[in-house]
Design a protein around this nucleic acid. Sequence first.
DNA 1: TTTAATTGTCACATTATTTGTTACAATTAA
DNA 2: TTAATTGTAACAAATAATGTGACAATTAAA
Lengths: 136, 136
Amino acid sequence: MSNTRFATAIHILTLLARQPGEWLNSDYIAGSIQVNPVIVRRELIILNEAGLVISKKGKEGGVQLAKPSSKISLAAIYHAVKNTEVLGKKNLNPNSQCPVGRQINDRLTQLFLETDYLVSNALTKKTLADFGKQFK
Amino acid sequence: MSNTRFATAIHILTLLARQPGEWLNSDYIAGSIQVNPVIVRRELIILNEAGLVISKKGKEGGVQLAKPSSKISLAAIYHAVKNTEVLGKKNLNPNSQCPVGRQINDRLTQLFLETDYLVSNALTKKTLADFGKQFK
DNA sequence: TTTAATTGTCACATTATTTGTTACAATTAA
DNA sequence: TTAATTGTAACAAATAATGTGACAATTAAA
């Protein structure tokens, strides 16, 4: 992950968790992160598809959590935004004439899966509520 | 990590581990990965700085492992090539007028460190020799 | 019914990162 | 003296990430 998507998503959700039932709008959220509101709206679409937020269009609209923050794991957030594996990408065309080239991507698939699982598993144990409690 | 650096590095080292004491050159290695030799040489510089390989310039030169593959952990390889944390980057200027904006980067630093430590710790237990044994 | 605020979304611009390529000085063995 | 090789620079190309302006559709309130 060489992007800020996880940081942006957890920032959004931390704000929402502090005002359950309130419809916060993307301008307000963007003001807290200090990024363009479109960045926030784009991330909100992903979080909506993941079932973590619900949104209301139109005047007095906005977004709120789809469920209590104690039911949202950091793993769910991570899965919603992640786009590469922890150990990165594989090379596309290793040489099949070479024993190492021929087998390496299968071995990496296994190692990459194990490593991702480890991270998922740890994040599953942490909730958004726990994360939010750390803020004064 | 949305790059192929770990995959490239472990590919290089797996090849070297199969021929201990031999000076393999960057063209040969590049042929197995099927990337440009400069990509390989650039990664070799990093692996050299990390104390994992030694190299010899000039005719009949090349690179070999700096120590037995049983003494090289996957964590050492990962550390040599990693350039971002597992959970990505933080936003640069969260709004300090906002309680969440003011505190979030410290909380993320902690979470990111924990997550990275987890991965390091797991990779410390695996050696290049173990990885190499999986190849026929 | 009209107005204002808001999401969802598109198109494009800009910046950053990653990968590829050519070239060559310095080094070393034959 | 020649040929092969690393180390490295400079630049090109491709891909990914972030920023921006615009606007249709929707909704609440005036």
